[in-house]
Design a protein around this nucleic acid. Structure first.
Lengths: 204, 204
DNA sequence: GTCTATATCCAGATAGAC
DNA sequence: GTCTATCTGGATATAGAC
């Protein structure tokens, strides 16, 4: 019974995703170097040898995680920008969504921390570093453009748009870090602590 | 010519500090596991073997860094709290000092990142984890008390004090991360992005 | 105190049976 | 595709000369 080669590929892709999602948690909590291939294999429930049929090396797994993370994050940022909403509504939606995601999807925090630490590490694969350098500015630029638009239409307070975007995202990254440090105890703050960066009061 | 045993101890302590300050940078940028003892020894300019006359292991170096970092940070936080200033002035001073430190002393960012990542890692020595659990809340509590005081005397806006403290410190930690990611390009934002967490406008 | 040399261990990657 | 067994390199920590 010869199997469909397309189905074969799909099963292979699913297996690769399973490996990636187990590895994210380990890389984020232990770092690349301290994570053993044996740990990843155990987490996903396969032998160490088999793992090498899906990825050529531990580093390749890491690079693939970084690649996918930026793809999703930057797509989401650009999608938000295109929605038919006012700058103020976009910022409010972003803040609410981020606070909720932070609470509900632990995975978001893991990936955030993984990228954050990889950004400053010189112990990550060169290819990962290249992706990071190329992609990391996108969400900052989207928020900076939002800030500029909101200041133009008068609904935002003053402040350098680049500064505001910086504080916005560093707060999100900081909260992700905090969320993991606290574990299940964590409760996201009111989204207004984020929107307040851009405008003081919130009358609808 | 027999040497003074007190002088001997002082020289030994200085040497230990030199090792620690070299190791901070390496641990922060590579993580504990990826930092080789040989790297630390090379950075401080001694042989690998000699390093073991000052510390029993790589992990002991790490623990000592964490211990000293919390000692300094928490002392500074408690000192600020005791100054004869209004809550508003204390927050403004903290924000200004932190933004300036961030820009001028790269070391602050390294230590901040080291502690942040160590807080969520389960690949750090148990003793380091114990210190972190015991000490990490101190700065949050100081700022939360400040927020409460400022709300009582009417100079701060509303908002849950714990939320405000959380956002304050996560922003600082996030900026430290960003500062290292950017390198010399980095320029701190206006301190008002921090004070704005507590009160909207800044008339003297 | 300082070095060089080395014992020991452990993890990444591979080979080859099923 | 999946496993077990193994090769190999490299890093920690120690030993011992100076």
């Amino acid at each position: 019974m010869a199997r469909n080669p397309i189905q074969n590929k799909r099963m292979r892709d699913e297996r690769r995703q399973a490996i990636l999602s187990c590895a994210v948690r380990l890389f984020a909590t232990r770092g690349l170097a301290a994570t053993k291939v044996a740990d990843i294999a155990a987490a996903v429930g396969m032998s160490q040898g088999l793992l090498y049929h899906y990825f050529r090396s531990k580093e390749e797994i890491f690079v693939e995680i970084v690649r996918q993370a930026f793809e999703r994050m930057n797509t989401a940022a650009r999608d938000l920008e295109r929605l038919p909403l006012t700058p103020r509504q976009k910022v409010e939606q972003a803040a609410t969504t981020l606070m909720r995601t932070l609470e509900e999807h632990e995975n978001f925090s893991w990936i955030s921390v993984l990228i954050s630490t990889a950004s400053i590490s010189d112990a990550v694969p060169a290819e990962a570093r290249a992706i990071i350098r190329r992609e990391r500015d996108v969400p900052y630029r989207v928020v900076a453009r939002l800030a500029r638009a909101g200041q133009r239409d008068g609904s935002f307070d003053d402040g350098r748009p680049d500064d505001l975007a910086l504080v916005f995202w560093t707060t999100v990254k900081g909260l992700a870090l905090h969320r993991l440090a606290l574990g299940p105890t964590y409760k996201s703050p009111d989204p207004r602590v984020l929107t307040r960066i851009f405008f003081s009061e919130t009358p609808t």
